[in-house]
Lab assay of single mutants.
Amino acid sequence: GSLMYASIFGNVSAIIQRLYSGTARYHTQMLRVREFIRFHQIPNPLRQRLEEYFQHAWSYTNGIDMNAVLKGFPECLQADICLHLNRSLLQHCKPFRGATKGCLRALAMKFKTTHAPPGDTLVHAGDLLTALYFISRGSIEILRGDVVVAILGKNDIFGEPLNLYARPGKSNGDVRALTYCDLHKIHRDDLLEVLDMYPEFSDHFWSSLEITFNLRDTNMIPGSPGSTELEGGFSRQRKRKLSFRRRTDKDTEQPGEVSALGPGRAGAGPSSRGRPGGPWGESPSSGPSSPESSEDEGPGRSSSPLRLVPFSSPRPPGEPPGGEPLMEDCEKSSDTCNPLSGAFSGVSNIFSFWGDSRGRQYQELPRCPAPTPSLLNIPLSSPGRRPRGDVESRLDALQRQLNRLETRLSADMATVLQLLQRQMTLVPPAYSAVTTPGPGPTSTSPLLPVSPLPTLTLDSLSQVSQFMACEELPPGAPELPQEGPTRRLSLPGQLGALTSQPLHRHGSDPGS
């Protein structure tokens, strides 16, 4: 009898404990919600809404976190579960008819179910419309201010047509639940991603989709105040780019002037030289400038040598048109050559190039014969006009050509200096018209024969001689050997007369 009593008592207590286990969990969670309300000092109306929603959600799901349970299964099984949970929507909604099984599984994985109690606001006026909503159960109302403009029910759709707008718009009203509602919502990016994977279904979906109420604000059109608020930074940046392009296009129409201050000032006329910023005076940081632009901040801005204009002085008759350009485009679109090309026009420029290279940067340069637009006047290309890779490749080509020119210049200078040193070592320090008596009659020769300089066969020296023939050397430049009979510069000019005159010897006659 005691054994029977113990078994009955144990079973009854276990049954009672299981009955009250759900209630215990409910009270535990309710205590957490109330502690949250007390800690954050939530006001009474919002506090009442929180408690009511918790009670309804507990009775609806029995305190089970559906998302946590669903995430515990593998992905393939999750797709089947989501397809079952959203079967009513996918079967009865017209846009989803005719979709393949794979497309429906992908869509079912992207849908999220939302449960809303009465009085809950789903979308506020001015919120971004980031999702498309399908009503599965219940009814909602749409308000503009305090005026109800629409009441939607089961199988209705609200949001915005995503295929017509590249960016999400703003809501033009509040969406509030009238009863307990079940909503299926899919985010904008998720829907577009699935439709991109199934393009054959995309056309059918957009053609058959009928949005019951379009929440997009109709005033959000390009150029409206609301649109400016939504895309303020983007609009200002776009206007700045367009104004920069218009100014650079105007600059290219004036090829007669070359400016070292950047493309923003290349198009300024002579009357605007004294102004601080020219056409860019209202925004000094709008356009890029070269490193020399920092010198323009000092006094005497109108007389600054940074602004270059072609000189009108005539060229000498024998002067060549100019050196070879550094870039391939210089032959086609440049009416002034790079300062480095002028360094190779003569030997005198070679000796004085490194010492006063900055001073020569603004000297007169030889002109190319074609009066085409200036290379320095070409505006900086924006990322939309020329690819970045093209600019980098041009810079690399320019750097390689500069290296080759520097190597060639160093070799030419070394060769010229070597020839000058050899000339100085071969010439005796001094010569006299009267020579010392020699031991015999073989001493009648006034000077030792001097062998002429070897013929220069280097390509670089031939180019130097060509430049010497075309360029007029300055007075202080050293002379180079030329073709024809060679003669030492330090010898007297009348050596031929010395050989014809008898030598005057000093000596005593033994017979006297």
Rank of each mutant, 00 (worst) to 15 (best):
P437A: 10
V391T: 15
N403L: 11
S313Y: 12
N349Y: 01
L503M: 15
C337A: 13
S508P: 09
S224Q: 11
N403V: 14
G256D: 07
Q501R: 12
R238M: 09
G256T: 09
V258H: 13
S382V: 14
I135C: 07
S272N: 03
P373F: 09
D203L: 12
I221F: 12
D196C: 12
R307L: 07
F353D: 13
R273D: 15
Q501V: 09
G223V: 10
N338I: 12
T228V: 10
P379N: 05
V148H: 08
D196N: 10
T415A: 12
L380H: 08
Q466D: 14
S352H: 09
G355P: 09
A260Y: 12
L164H: 11
L308R: 08
L409P: 04
G173D: 03
P475T: 07
L503D: 15
L419R: 07
T415E: 04
R247H: 13
R236N: 07
V391G: 11
A268T: 08
N214M: 02
R315P: 15
P199G: 05
R137A: 10
G298V: 13
L195N: 01
S443G: 08
G138M: 02
L473S: 08
V347H: 04
D146V: 03
F234M: 12
M327L: 10
G153L: 04
S289W: 05
R265D: 14
T455C: 12
S272M: 10
T372A: 12
G323H: 09
R236D: 11
P373L: 09
N338R: 12
L453N: 15
P288E: 11
S303D: 11
E392A: 06
A343M: 07
I378K: 15
S293R: 05
C470A: 06
S381C: 05
R240V: 11
F353S: 11
S208H: 13
L426I: 13
Q466E: 04
D156Y: 01
S348V: 03
D127Q: 06
D509I: 05
E364G: 10
T228I: 07
A166Y: 09
R247G: 10
D329E: 14
P371A: 10
K154A: 11
F234C: 08
Q482D: 15
L456D: 11
S357Y: 15
T212E: 03
G323I: 09
R315L: 13
K250M: 10
Q399T: 04
H504C: 06
L376W: 11
Q399F: 05
C368R: 15
R315G: 15
L480C: 09
G440H: 15
T252H: 13
R240E: 12
F351P: 11
S341D: 13
R505D: 08
M220K: 09
S432A: 11
M424K: 09
G440F: 15
P325N: 04
G346Y: 09
E471G: 12
D296A: 12
S462Q: 11
E160A: 03
D396A: 10
D396W: 13
S348P: 07
G232A: 11
E472G: 12
S259Y: 08
A260I: 13
A268Q: 10
R247V: 10
G438E: 05
A397R: 09
L143R: 11
L461T: 09
V148C: 08
S465R: 07
H184W: 04
